[in-house]
Amino acid sequence: MDQFDAFKAMGEFWARAGTNFLGMPGTPFAQGAGQGVGQGAGPGQAMPTWPGLQPTDFAGLADAQSALAMSWASATALSTTLAETLRGSGTADPTATAVLARIFDPKAWLGGGAEFDGGLSRMAEGPRLADLWTMERKLGALSTAWGGLQRAQAEHNAVMLDGWTRAAGAFAKLVNERTERGEGFRSAREMMSLWIETANTVLLDVQRSEAFLASQRAMLKATTDLRLAQQEIAAATSELYGQPSRVEMDDVHKGLTELRREVRALRRAAAAATKAEAKRSEAASARENADG
């Protein structure tokens, strides 16, 4: 690995970390990979369609995506400026440019796209069952739930992008102040440390905001709704093919848990009876010995 490959690898490391971050509830954008802002094209791209989907199912989604698109445009412009200026004039090093672009890429705060392995995204995954077109009502509900999740994602992404813009602005202000004092960065690492520290402070603040908590709750709710809609279809399919459904399995597990409680109680009662009997025998033996 030569030096340039190493530097590129660092950029990849950075991007991967951002991707991983996405899988968490704070940034649960991964469901529907390829449809969110994290998937390269940015917000506002064409939404995939589902058979039987009515436009009215997505009231508000267009507004949410429009707001997100504006935040996105602002954040990406700022990101480009930061990366270009930190690269420095005249260096024209394409590798360094690419790495800096990655480090200051607001997508790292949003969605990772294809590699989603975190909490909510995993929860929302499930059988697509795209071939079951006969179950229109259930599929309609599924489509609505999917649309709800997309909308919630867009609204949450907008909150996160606002946060990124605040962080980038605070960072630029700090850098300006350093420059005015005649201080430069001794290393790229020092510059990154300042960015990390600044961004962390802003992120912690964002996470406590009502907007963040509300949009995240909406994400969780939308993810749950989608999951339940998927399970409705799975249950109908199970019934169709004579397979046990989730509800039936839950019933069995509930019964098993209750039986285990009863067995535990019986075991305890038996053990207590044995102990009591042993004590009585012991006492009786002691009396016999005393009498004898």
Binding site: L78, T81, S89, V159, K173, V175, T179, G184
Partner: peptide, 20 residues
Amino acid sequence: MVETAPDRKAAAAALPSLTP
């Protein structure tokens, strides 16, 4: 919720750079 966007031109002019 959105704070004032930073003055990008000012930032661009003021940011120090590392040498190649």
